[in-house]
């Protein structure tokens, strides 16, 4: 929801970034306020996944100029774990499998890292179980998920649900969802979307990075940004997505080069 008086959560100005010496992000500007849902769309190789990883602090990407302010602090000063504890959450396009660590232990360690940061008491396994069972319901996940290795042998849909489960536990200020819809069948997409909708509120913001209009049938964004060549070329409301669906990206890309 758009509220002109809402506080700014994320402010990106003139961001440029390299990977292995090649410039991928070429002057990106974006402002996200509390309560808003933004979607970044764009063709393959436009830099949208790169941008989401930069927000989370992936070491492979080097920010060469510009700034990212998150909740009033310079995000680029923070390590990835500090960003997470301060309230940035990246749902991975390809969540990693960690056999040997149970999902339950992983979620608890992660949840407690955040609580410690907020000077809250860490949860013991019993209290944590109460919390996690409540969140499992939201994502229609069976409790046996907790006893399996992190993402080990999970289907594509199960991995994505597990990402949203983590977001539900960590309650971030900004959820960055990188292609959360890729590889999902329609039922899984519904579950994941309704999870995201349930978690979205006036005190946080969501940034969806997606390739497909279909996700936006389930999660209604306040703003849509079209990204190409490492920049945002056009910003609009949800109607823009329909236009993109009908006409493709070319008209925007052509317009930008003129």
């Amino acid at each position: 929801m758009i509220n002109p008086n809402a506080s700014t959560i994320l402010s990106v100005k003139n961001l440029t970034a390299n990977v292995d010496g090649t410039q991928i992000i070429k002057g990106l500007n974006l402002e996200i306020k509390s309560g808003e849902i933004h979607a970044i769309m764009g063709p393959n190789g436009s830099g949208k996944s790169t941008f989401s990883k930069i927000l989370a602090g992936h070491p492979a990407y080097e920010v060469t100029s510009g700034e990212i302010m998150f909740m009033g602090q310079n995000l680029l000063d923070l390590d990835p774990e500090e960003r997470s504890r301060s309230g940035i959450f990246l749902a991975f396009q390809y969540p990693l499998e960690i056999p040997g660590v149970s999902n339950r232990d992983f979620l608890r360690v992660s949840c407690n890292a955040k609580r410690k940061h907020e000077s809250l008491e860490e949860l013991d396994p019993m209290d944590f179980d109460d919390l996690v069972y409540e969140k499992l319901e939201l994502l229609k996940m069976d409790s046996e998920f907790l006893d399996r290795g992190v993402n080990e042998g999970f289907s594509g849909g199960e991995k994505k649900r597990n990402e949203i489960l983590q977001m539900a536990l960590l309650e971030p200020k900004l959820g960055v969802l990188d292609e959360i819809d890729s590889g999902l069948d329609i039922d899984a997409l519904r579950v994941v979307s309704s999870g995201v909708n349930a978690l979205s509120n006036e005190n946080n913001a969501m940034l969806l990075v997606t390739h497909y209009q279909r996700l936006l049938d389930y999660i209604t964004p306040d703003y849509i940004h079209v990204m190409a060549e490492g920049r945002i070329l056009q910003t609009g409301t949800k109607e823009l997505a329909l236009e993109l669906e009908a006409k493709g990206y070319d008209w925007i890309l052509e317009g930008a080069t003129v």
Partner: peptide
């Protein structure tokens, strides 16, 4: 590195 980053992105120090 990606596995370490995944855990870091969940608040766990490197």
């Amino acid at each position: 590195d990606d596995a370490v980053f995944y855990l870091q992105s969940r608040g766990i120090d490197s």
